[in-house]
């Protein structure tokens, strides 16, 4: 149920930001730390260290945040009503996965205005795998009246390490959900601020120009020489930080897992841009993915040797 005390412009079914605020309120109430987006370009909310790294190690963790996600290949110059090269994911990570995670998820749908007595919500098998992160899990895509609105995953492995304990991850496609609850057909028509008349700001007002510009950039102009160089730099910097981070040269404690992981994120995004520019062949593609995965694995190993990764300071 949508909070009846909300003024119309704050309601999740009237306003894109209202939807985000409703999810924040819901998950904050369930004990999550509500974080801000990670300040780097990523392809999905999972890349945020609050998920990738925090999913590793024995310590409990509950977090929720919005993550702007960039998929350079999905750009359509602002012409497609559903596809974007930049969009928002709402990410929730709960470690260990609580026994009532499905019920919590369903309650969150109610909170943003999806009436479970009117809509057909289903959990349809979808096993999740991220080759670049060396991660996989089992779960579902969650359907509402035939539309996939979320991804629900029990992480089994991240960065090549078993998750112990297992974390539950929920990823909401915010634009799709908003289109659904607002009843609009085109993402650019979404009401962003919930106001009407002159005060109304749409998703298109905020992002259409960006979609056009970035599509041009991603497909036609992104400087591939620079990008190849950036990939190499990020890869070697990550290796440098990983090496330098081991305390006393022993492999017991690591002091720079997060800066190293930033370079892994960087390499991954640069790879996505190169891929969108079509300059990576099929065989090379596989080897780039492997190189990022090796970085992710090494960062995971480093993270496990930190306090937040479960190795307390001596």
């Amino acid at each position: 149920m949508i909070d009846p005390a909300l003024p119309p412009h704050m309601r999740p079914d009237n306003s894109f930001q209202g939807l985000i605020l409703a999810l924040h309120a819901f998950w904050a109430d369930k004990g999550c730390v509500v974080l801000q987006p990670y300040d780097m370009e990523v392809g999905a909310g999972t890349f945020h260290p609050a998920t990738t790294l925090r999913a590793l190690g024995p310590l409990p963790w509950k977090a929720a945040y919005v993550q702007p996600s960039r998929r350079p290949k999905d750009g359509r110059y602002g012409k497609n009503p559903n596809r974007l090269q930049h969009y928002y994911q709402y990410q929730v990570i709960l470690k260990p996965s609580p026994a009532d995670l499905q019920d919590l998820y369903l309650a969150s749908l109610s909170a943003i205005g999806i009436d479970l007595n009117l809509h057909d919500v289903r959990f349809v098998e979808d096993d999740w795998e991220s080759p670049t992160l060396g991660a996989w899990g089992l779960g579902w895509e969650c359907w509402c009246d035939g539309m996939e609105v979320s991804q629900f995953t029990y992480f089994q492995q991240v960065a090549g390490f078993e998750c112990a304990p297992v974390a539950g991850e929920l990823t909401y496609g915010l634009e799709r959900l908003a289109m659904y609850v607002q009843g609009v057909e085109n993402v650019y028509d979404l009401n962003f601020n919930g106001r009407e008349g002159d005060e109304k700001v749409t998703y298109g007002d905020v992002f259409l120009q960006a979609e056009e510009e970035y599509s041009r950039h991603n497909f036609e102009h992104a400087d591939t020489d620079m990008l190849f160089e950036q990939f190499r730099m990020a890869e070697s910097a990550a290796a440098k930080y990983l090496e330098a981070g081991w305390e006393d040269g022993t492999k017991a404690r690591h002091l720079m897992a997060q800066p190293a992981y930033d370079q892994c994120i960087k390499a991954s995004h640069v790879f996505n841009l190169l891929d969108a520019r079509g300059v990576i062949s099929v065989t090379e593609r596989q080897s780039y993915i492997l190189r990022v995965r090796e970085l992710a694995k090494a960062c995971g190993a480093a993270w496990l040797a930190t306090a937040a990764g479960g190795t307390p300071a001596p």
Binding site: N117, L118, H119, D120, D145, G146, M147
Partner: peptide, 25 residues
């Protein structure tokens, strides 16, 4: 023809409308 898992309180109107939207897209 769609098969839902719910005997909805509105007789399925919202479910049909939702599925039609997705199929249209």
């Amino acid at each position: 023809v769609l098969v839902s898992n719910l005997a909805a309180s509105d007789g399925g109107t919202a479910i049909i409308a939702g599925n039609e939207r997705v199929i249209r897209a």
